[in-house]
Design a protein around this nucleic acid. Structure first.
Lengths: 108, 108
DNA sequence: TGTATAAGTAAACTATAGTTGACCTTTAAT
DNA sequence: ATTAAAGGTCAACTATAGTTTACTTATACA
């Protein structure tokens, strides 16, 4: 019997994207970029992740675009799967220094 | 003209709740408790907040119970309003120490 | 202990997030 | 230049989050 042609699909083509600066203030877009970076770093396609988590590709894409009109549950599922998590920060509004260290960029 | 009877409703009755330990791992319930703590600390009622943000009281209650079947957008709105924010953590799976410092509690 | 206000629940309805399947575009390897 | 797989969009449909209104339960206090 002849050899099966070696599956060429073994070497996946998933382009890595850069991890954003996680020390910067939270925004949904920064979260989205972190998710994409994690996913591509793990050489997983959108379909890989959506199948693993039972969410649709369009929904995953919404999340990876920073769209906040998605279920919180789905965001958490994706983050957990890719090894991302939140920590909680209480803006204690102590030390109101006027130095522009805190940017007022939009978070959504 | 006689004095109007001083509105007795000036002293609001909003019971403060304790702020959870924000250094512990993220969970939606911990987030929920932080939200409630922030709100009550600011002497705001559920109706105050839901009106200010144009979300319904039942939805706010879902959020304050840690229900993750809510829109990400609504969670972010509430957090912003109360002065809570996320920071992003990438579980780099370096230093896999086997000491039970990392609890495996559920996060939803 | 009655009263006022906050918290919480429930049901019927509305709005919208999510899915499916098809399709187009992009990219990288041969 | 073709091809194969990934990324991304769209439209029709389904599932479900969110709203409204009303009601119940708790809590403080006069």
């Amino acid at each position: 019997m002849s050899e099966l042609p070696a599956k060429k699909t073994l070497g996946r083509v998933v382009k890595r994207t850069e991890m954003p600066d996680l020390s910067k203030p939270f925004s949904s877009v920064r979260l989205a970029k972190a998710i994409t970076s994690k996913r591509t770093g793990m050489k997983l396609t959108l379909v890989d992740v959506s199948q693993a988590l039972n969410i649709s590709k369009p929904t995953l894409i919404k999340i990876e675009k920073g769209d906040v009109n998605v279920q919180f549950f789905n965001v958490l599922k994706v983050m957990e799967y890719l090894g991302l998590s939140f920590s909680l920060v209480s803006d204690d509004e102590s030390h109101h220094n006027n130095k522009d260290e805190v940017s007022d960029e939009q978070w959504y």
